[in-house]
Design a protein around this nucleic acid. Structure first.
Length: 101
DNA sequence: ACCATGACGCACA
DNA sequence: ATGTGCGCCATGG
C-alpha cells in the first residue's frame, strides 16, 4: 500500500540528483517544514515498494552514516561510490554531498 | 481502537 | 568527544 506520505517521500528521493545525498532529517524538513517525522520517513523507505527504482540509497542519516539498506549497507555504499560520492569509514561528507531541497 | 515496531534524531550525563 | 536513553511520526497486526 502506498500512502500519500510515502509517495511524498519517494518523490523527494527522486529529486536528489546523482552524486548528491540527502538525509532523513532534510526530507522530513522539506516535507512538512517541521522535523519530527524522520521516523515515518525511514519507515516509508524501508517498505520501499519501488526498491531499485527509487534512488532511496541517496538517503542517509543526518550524522553522515549510511544507515541501513534493504540490500545491505555495503550495496548502498557501493552505489553511492558509483555516483562519485566519497565514503570514509562508512561515512559520507555531508558538507560536500548533502543536497538541500 | 490499541499496541508494538522501525533504514532516525537529539538531549543529557 | 563518547555512550545511553527518550521521543517523534506513520504503518501494520
Amino acid at each position: 500500500m502506498v500512502t500519500i506520505f510515502e509517495q511524498k517521500v519517494y518523490d523527494l528521493c527522486r529529486l536528489v540528483p546523482k552524486g548528491k545525498v540527502t538525509t532523513y532529517r532534510e526530507i522530513s524538513n522539506a516535507l512538512r517544514g517541521r522535523g519530527q517525522i524522520y521516523r515515518a520517513v525511514g519507515n516509508a523507505l524501508n517498505k520501499n515498494p519501488f526498491a531499485p527504482q527509487v534512488p532511496c540509497h541517496r538517503v542517509i542519516n543526518s550524522n553522515g552514516f549510511v544507515g541501513g539498506f534493504v540490500y545491505g549497507t555495503k550495496s548502498k555504499i557501493a552505489l553511492l561510490k558509483k555516483e562519485g560520492i566519497e565514503i570514509k569509514n562508512k561515512k559520507i561528507d555531508l558538507k560536500k554531498f548533502l543536497f538541500r531541497f
